[in-house]
């Protein structure tokens, strides 16, 4: 009984170790029908080798013609180890140039792979059905008429310029954004502050509020507005005595000298002599409005 058990164990262990050592080969085949001339077929051959076994890389098929109608166009070989086994993946791409007159079965020959210990693995042959792409008898003669009508020449296409156009647009836009941003940042041309127009502003205020300013407080207010405009235009306080020098610096107002002098006289009366009524007699609000609008017009003409 004991020896029987031992024998079974021995047989089993031999069997399993032999199974582990035997190279395993499997092939993923493409479809076996429906091919025309020029079509490609891809076969994936997976070889699983045990420990100590090595594939002789010289026995791998190489790209090139196999016979007058079949070529190997690509061979991709990959190798990876799984435990102590090695898995080789061999992708063979064939191209058929057979021109059948009727559907017929063709055979891709098998591949013999050698191991380093000179034993051989055989990848089985593969057969497929290829079909013609033209009718057999197009016309009475094979050398004239529609039998030799060719597909037309292909015209050379123009180059696509879409990418360059888009790149040009994008870079032009970014340059523009950069330029506008810099102009804004450094207060260049469109963003430099316009010079102030004090007389225009004062004239606008007086014109819009002429009715409201026709009182004692309002008259002072109107005078003050005009004074502030003179101050801003001159860049300093302008008093009655400064009028000649102001007009020397701003000759555009020279034409209005008499009006300006009357304004300063009225202003002196209103503020220093505290006699607003007299001042209003000297120069009523309507005249102030007229003077301010003339000053504004002269200011705009000058700049």
């Amino acid at each position: 009984m004991r020896w029987l058990l031992a024998a079974i164990v021995l047989v089993l262990s031999v069997a399993t170790s032999a199974a582990a050592r035997a190279p395993q080969i499997s092939v993923d085949e493409p479809r076996a029908f429906g091919y025309f001339l020029g079509d490609v077929l891809s076969r994936r051959i997976t070889v699983r080798l045990g420990a100590g076994q090595e594939l002789d890389s010289a026995s791998l098929p190489r790209p090139g013609p196999l016979n007058y109608w079949l070529e190997i166009s690509r061979v991709d070989h990959a190798e990876k180890s799984e435990g102590d086994a090695t898995v080789h993946t061999l992708d063979l791409t064939y191209q058929t140039f057979y021109t059948p007159l009727d559907p017929r079965r063709l055979t891709i020959p098998g591949v013999k792979l050698k191991l380093q210990d000179d034993s051989e693995l055989t990848v089985p042959e593969f057969s497929f059905i290829t079909s013609p792409i033209r009718q057999l008898f197009a016309s009475a003669s094979q050398s004239t008429g529609s039998a030799v009508d060719l597909q037309a020449d292909l015209p050379a296409p123009r180059l696509m310029t879409g990418t360059e156009r888009t790149a040009l647009l994008v870079s032009a836009l970014s340059a523009l954004i950069g330029l506008i941003g810099l102009a804004w940042h450094y207060a260049w041309w469109p963003f430099n502050k316009r010079p102030a127009r004090p007389f225009t502003e004062a004239s606008r205020y007086l014109r819009l509020n002429a009715a409201k300013l026709d009182g004692v407080g309002g008259y002072r207010d109107a005078l003050l507005r005009l004074h502030r405009a003179f101050d801003v235009a001159a860049g300093r306080r302008v008093l009655a005595d400064d009028v000649p020098s102001f007009l020397g610096q701003h000759p555009e107002f020279e034409r209005l000298r008499s009006g300006i002098e009357r304004l300063f006289v009225a202003s002196r009366r209103a503020f220093f002599a505290n006699d607003v009524e007299e001042a209003r007699g000297e120069m009523p609000v309507s005249e102030l409005v007229a003077l301010s609008s003339e000053l504004g017009a002269a200011e705009r003409r000058a700049s």
């Binding site: 360059e164 950069g178 330029l179 941003g181 810099l182 940042h185």
Partner: peptide, 17 residues
Amino acid sequence: LLKALLAVGVVGCVISG
């Protein structure tokens, strides 16, 4: 940053143009 943007844009314009 704005100067770099302007420079990149100008270089891009020249190359793509």
